[in-house]
């Protein structure tokens, strides 16, 4: 399997697993590759500090861990950071947190980022939320990213490969149509009785990517979700890894 939604780093509100824990869980669950981004970069004022340390942390594991850059398009000099992440660090995509970093996908800076990533042919991942609002630290409740704004961003950049991470059951409907063919969402927080079966029938198997949201979620949750769903072998293969490989041109 190919996990397109994992992170490495610290989380301010509870202890989480390390890169060794991630690799051990990948081994036990049959996950051969994982996209990883810096979790520190979510809370660092300058996310590039997190991107730089991520590359060092995963250096011995580049055969299995695919690094993604966390970019904050309202932070001065982000264009240089993006170039450094792609050209020097070999990062294969960009992760956005409009809610944690307090900007909107409708902002001109976001449009510039979308255009640059389209031109560079690298995918953009938008994380809708990372924690159930009911479970967040009361002083700093972070709302989810507007689902409608993610759909609109995709329509604004039809050549961009865009992935919504952490959509919950029912939320893909809020993206509105038409969605570009290059629009995807992951399994990580998509949970309900018959969840994946419904998603395939409504959105097509080609749009769905296996994601775990590790280390905040244990990756077993999504591995078992995929294993236990009522899918054909071809559908399981596509969600489990085929779609992710196509996304990265592997």
């Amino acid at each position: 399997m190919f996990d397109i939604n994992a992170r490495i780093g610290h989380w301010p509100y509870r202890p989480v697993g390390t890169v060794d824990d991630l690799l051990r869980n990948m081994d036990s669950l049959g996950i051969s590759c994982a996209c990883v981004s810096s979790m520190d970069a979510i809370h660092f004022l300058n996310p590039q500090d997190g991107n730089d340390s991520l590359v060092a942390a995963i250096a011995p594991h580049r055969d299995r861990l695919v690094p993604l850059a966390v970019v904050r398009p309202e932070f001065a000099g982000w264009q240089d950071d993006l170039t450094r992440c792609i050209q020097s660090h070999g990062m294969r995509g960009v992760v956005l947190y409009p809610n944690y970093h307090q900007y909107n996908l409708e902002d001109p800076e976001s449009a510039e980022l979308g255009a640059r990533c389209s031109e560079a042919q690298i995918p953009v991942f938008v994380q809708v939320g990372l924690e159930d609002a009911r479970r967040q630290f009361g002083r700093t409740i972070v709302p989810e990213v507007s689902i409608e704004s993610i759909g609109a961003f995709g329509r604004e950049h039809p050549a961009l490969r865009l992935v919504a991470l952490g959509l919950k059951f029912g939320q893909p409907d809020l993206l509105r149509q038409p969605l570009p063919k290059t629009f995807y969402f992951d399994t990580s927080n998509y949970e309900r009785l018959g969840d994946l079966e419904f998603a395939i029938s409504h959105f097509g198997v080609d749009r769905i990517l296996f994601g775990t949201c590790a280390p905040l979620f244990h990756p077993r949750a999504n591995a078992d979700k995929l294993r236990c769903a009522d899918l054909t072998a071809d559908q399981r293969e596509a969600i489990g890894q085929g779609n992710a490989k196509a996304l990265f041109g592997l």
Partner: peptide
């Protein structure tokens, strides 16, 4: 908490 949640995902809390 099915059907709002899934058997496999929620069981993973114990199995992991």
């Amino acid at each position: 908490d099915v059907p709002g949640r899934s058997f496999a995902v929620q069981m993973s809390k114990v199995l992991s």
